[in-house]
């Protein structure tokens, strides 16, 4: 009994010490995608502002939204995609931004603001722009490799390919291949896309939203549909990996920084927003996450290696071929239905 008491006391002291030490420094709670920020920059910010940044991660907009809707409190900043900003704003979760407190907002590249859906930056500032494309092992495919979504119809790679386990991305790739908009609500177009996707499905190992990165690195998969930055990050582990944007076009996504209405550290949150929009910081962030920060002040700081990567920087000719996935509201049900049919097809 004495021993147990002693143990309990030790634990309680430890807890008291741990919680006590945080009292004098402010804490900022950030809810973000994983591998989506250069950790060195976070340390730099902590030192500059004598604070502690606590990171928590989510793997989909829906997970994050569900958690916040269910009452998760305490987060200050979140990094949702464009359509989710609209939903969160409608649900009254977001703080209206005071631009005076974010002087670096002037750095935002107006050429890309259109992708953020929140054109006036009322609730959000653009963080990173990504695109969806094809990651592949260069020595497994025919050279020169022509990037096309139709590669998923090639039976030579059967069982060694994955597409995203995300209905909008997977159906979107098929829609783009057929020359349709990936936000279409036309049932005929969607039915055609479904049939094409069902054909591709026969050659897929699986629909995979996360493990495709490891799979490509360990050469379990040869060809995957994935996000640009994710796939560039895998190149550090396997130099045979390459990335290309399909000729038929693809989806663009702009993730944004938003502040929650429930935030208890608004000044610090504004400071962190402003910090991330600083040119030098944004450039260092891009070199780490391999996504495009739409920040005119950042471009001069980029390394030549990164500047050479067209799929990251996305020239206007590439962008012309791309679309932003929009939230379709009631129309989402159409996509769910098509997705159920694709999943059930043999």
């Amino acid at each position: 009994m004495k021993r147990i008491c002693f143990f309990m006391c030790t634990v309680m002291c430890a807890v008291a010490v741990c919680t006590g030490c945080g009292n004098d420094v402010q804490e900022l709670y950030v809810y973000n995608w994983s591998d989506y920020i250069n950790e060195d920059l976070v340390v730099q910010f902590e030192e500059e502002h004598n604070c502690r940044v606590v990171m928590d991660y989510y793997d989909s907009n829906e997970t994050m939204f569900a958690k916040l809707k269910a009452g998760a409190a305490g987060y200050d900043l979140v990094f949702p995609s464009g359509y989710m900003v609209q939903i969160m704003a409608r649900e009254n979760l977001l703080e209206t931004l005071d631009h005076e407190k974010i002087p670096n907002i002037k750095n935002i590249d107006s050429a890309y603001v259109a992708f953020s859906l929140d054109l006036q930056s009322k609730y959000s500032v653009p963080y990173m722009i990504s695109n969806t494309g094809i990651g592949y092992l260069a020595d497994k495919v025919d050279q020169p490799f022509t990037p096309s979504w139709r590669i998923f119809g090639d039976a030579r790679f059967a069982g060694r390919m994955t597409m995203l386990n995300d209905m909008r991305e997977a159906i979107g790739a098929a829609l783009k291949t057929l020359g349709y908009s990936l936000n279409t609500l036309n049932p005929v177009e969607l039915a055609q896309a479904r049939d094409l996707l069902v054909q591709w499905k026969k050659n897929l190992a699986k629909f995979e939203a996360d493990q495709y990165k490891n799979g490509l690195v360990s050469e379990e998969f040869f060809i995957v549909q994935g996000y640009s930055g994710d796939l560039y990050q895998t190149m550090e582990e396997n130099s045979d990996i390459e990335y290309a944007i399909p000729v038929e076009g693809t989806s663009l996504a702009c993730d944004n920084i938003v502040m929650l209405k429930s935030s208890e550290h608004k000044d610090l949150a504004y400071a962190f927003m402003n910090f991330l929009l600083d040119g030098e910081v944004a450039a260092a962030n891009m070199e780490y996450v391999y996504y495009l920060a739409p920040n005119t002040a950042a471009y001069p700081f980029l390394s030549d290696d990164l500047k050479a990567e067209e799929p990251i920087l996305m020239s206007p000719s590439i962008i012309a071929n791309c679309e932003v996935i929009q939230d379709l509201g009631e129309g989402n049900a159409l996509y769910s239905e098509i997705w159920d049919q694709v999943k059930a097809a043999r």
Partner: peptide, 24 residues
Amino acid sequence: DMVGGTDGEMLGNKIAQRVFVDRN
């Protein structure tokens, strides 16, 4: 979800899809 392929969907996966993807 982890070792199943395109033909291995079980009821649990469907429930997850309804909740996380379809928001229903």
